[in-house]
């Protein structure tokens, strides 16, 4: 027999006169976390914050002692820590999750090492060089560990590298180019996750990671398209116009990948894709109309468009949700 959840108990309380003690007991037995949940929470909280604090302390320590430490001590200490982390991971009997947390810490320390190296030897490299090297250095760990938080760190580093490169090196690129590149990269990761899940179900990435990366891709596409449209409207960049290849590539790429996202969401019954993609389209279309507007009444029309489009989208999602529920019941 399935257990009641919070909504069930609240619903019953609206219509029935049952004592508070019974409602409390029902909540404690069926809704509140049990022993296993509390233990998991406490253990993850303590180890997670412990590792994070220690790592932050190490970073602050180096920030303070920067000038007085000999260069070999500076670099040696961080390298020593990285080696110590990896030795513990390889030879200890710790459980897999702990080892993955340690590996993530080691991956962050690699970035610290590169920063220290760059400062000591005054290489004169741009910040994007650091992030690029950091990304390349941890690729093998990311692939072997296949730990979702480490993947998130890796993908964040790639995105940061792209934006820093566009800012520091590729000064002649249109302003929306890093958004376009980031969109394609993040979409690539989402596609890879979907394909991996099909080929090896045991290696399927967790849903939260897929959602975060997909959300990143959607935000990049929306921002890039709106930025491109703004640039062309106010002629900030002489290369841009509706025929600009970067803008066209982002537009076509967004249309294709958004369609793929919708198809995937529909096939797999994932409401996130079915909601986020169309809402992004609503935002982009509204922005496009607003940018070209030369009439006050356009604001009101766009408001009505957003309300009607969002309402229709929600209605569609509710119907899909009902179909999902019927399919599960069957």
């Amino acid at each position: 027999m399935s257990t009641p959840d919070r909504e069930d108990i609240h619903l019953i309380s609206r219509h029935a006169q049952w004592p508070a003690s019974s409602a409390r007991k029902a909540l404690e037995e069926h809704v509140h976390p049990g022993r296993k949940d509390w233990k998991q929470f406490l253990e993850l909280f303590l180890i997670g914050t412990g590792v994070a604090f220690t790592l932050a302390g190490i970073i602050f320590f180096f920030a303070y002692n920067w000038d007085s430490l000999h260069k070999f001590v500076k670099i040696g200490l961080i390298e020593g820590l990285i080696v110590a982390c990896t030795l513990v991971i390889v030879f200890s009997q710790l459980n897999k999750t702990l080892k993955n947390i340690l590996l993530t810490a080691a991956a962050v320390l690699v970035g610290v090492l590169l920063a220290v190296f760059g400062q000591v030897y005054q290489s004169g490299a741009d910040a994007y060089d650091l992030f690029l090297m950091w990304t390349i250095a941890i690729i093998i760990w990311v692939l072997i560990a296949h730990f979702a938080p480490l993947w998130l760190v890796f993908i964040t580093l790639i995105n940061t590298t792209v934006f820093l490169y566009a800012d520091q090196v590729a000064n002649n690129w249109p302003k929306m180019s890093p958004f376009m590149i980031s969109f394609f990269i993040n979409s690539g990761f989402v596609l890879a996750g979907v394909i991996l899940g099909r080929l090896r179900p045991s290696a399927k990435p967790p849903e939260w990671l897929m959602i975060v990366v997909a959300l990143g891709a959607i935000v990049m596409a929306s921002t890039g398209l709106i930025a491109g449209k703004l640039m062309s409207r106010f002629n900030f960049d002489s290369l841009l116009g509706i025929g600009d290849p970067n803008f066209v590539a982002l537009l076509i790429g967004s249309l294709v990948l958004y369609a793929a996202g919708l198809w995937y969401g529909f096939k797999q019954r994932k409401l996130f894709y079915l909601g986020a993609v169309p809402f992004s389209a609503i935002v982009v279309v509204s922005a496009f109309i607003l940018i070209d507007a030369d009439n006050d009444i356009v604001f009101l029309l766009i408001t009505l468009f957003v309300i009607i489009a969002t309402t229709l989208l929600i209605r569609w999602l509710i119907n899909i949700q009902k179909n999902i529920t019927h399919e599960k019941a069957a």
Binding site: E43, L46, G50, F53, T54, I59, F61, Y64
Partner: peptide, 24 residues
Amino acid sequence: SLLVKSLLLMGSGILLIVLYFLLH
């Protein structure tokens, strides 16, 4: 100073890790 901050952080971090092992 950054030194005191770093020692505080590392101390807190190590304490939390020790607490984790004790609890486990």
